Simulated scan of single mutants.
Amino acid sequence: MDSRTVGIPEVDGTEDVAVVIDVMRAFTTAAWAFHRGADKIVLAADVGEALAIKACQPGWLALKDGAPVRGFDLVNSPGVIRDTDLSGRTVIQKTTAGTVGALAVVEAKLALCASFAVAGATARALADAAADSVTFVATGEDGRAAEDLACAEYLDRLLAGDRPDPDPYLLRARTSPAADDLRGGRRRGAHPADVELCLEVNRFDFAMKVGLEEGMAVLRPLRPRPDAASAVHRAR
Rank of each mutant, 00 (worst) to 15 (best):
G88M: 11
D128V: 15
I81P: 02
A130P: 10
R188H: 11
G37E: 08
R157Q: 15
L43Y: 06
A145N: 03
A33R: 06
R157D: 13
G184Y: 14
L170S: 06
G101A: 06
F204G: 01
R4P: 08
G59K: 09
S133K: 15
A229S: 15
R174A: 15
L219N: 07
F204I: 01
G140Q: 00
L212C: 09
V69I: 14
V11I: 15
A102N: 07
Y169I: 07
I92T: 07
L86A: 10
A44P: 06
G101P: 04
G66Y: 00
M208F: 09
R203K: 13
D12I: 14
F27S: 03
W60H: 02
D148E: 10
E214Y: 12
G98F: 06
P177I: 07
L103D: 01
E153C: 07
C198S: 02
A138R: 08
G59M: 04
D162R: 15
G189T: 07
A228W: 12
G143W: 04
R4N: 13
A111F: 12
V80M: 06
C113A: 13
A121T: 13
L171R: 15
G79Y: 07
D181R: 14
K94D: 05
A178N: 09
V11F: 12
S230F: 15
A31R: 09
L51S: 02
R203G: 03
V23M: 02
R174N: 10
C198A: 12
F206I: 07
A33W: 02
E153W: 01
P164N: 03
M1G: 13
A229G: 06
D227L: 15
W32I: 11
E214Q: 13
K64E: 07
D205I: 07
S115R: 06
A193Q: 08
A127R: 14
A150Y: 11
R187D: 04
P58L: 08
R25W: 00
A102K: 05
D227A: 14
G48R: 11
D132T: 14
F116I: 04
V201T: 12
L103K: 01
D227E: 15
T84F: 10
R157A: 15
A127G: 10
M208A: 11
C151V: 07
R234C: 02
T28W: 12
A138E: 12
G120S: 03
V20T: 02
R183Q: 13
T95H: 00
L51F: 03
M208I: 12
G140A: 08
R220N: 12
D2L: 15
M216G: 03
A129F: 14
G37H: 10
L61R: 05
A45Q: 14
R157F: 02
R203N: 01
C113Y: 06
T5P: 09
L197Y: 04
D2P: 10
C151S: 02
W32T: 08
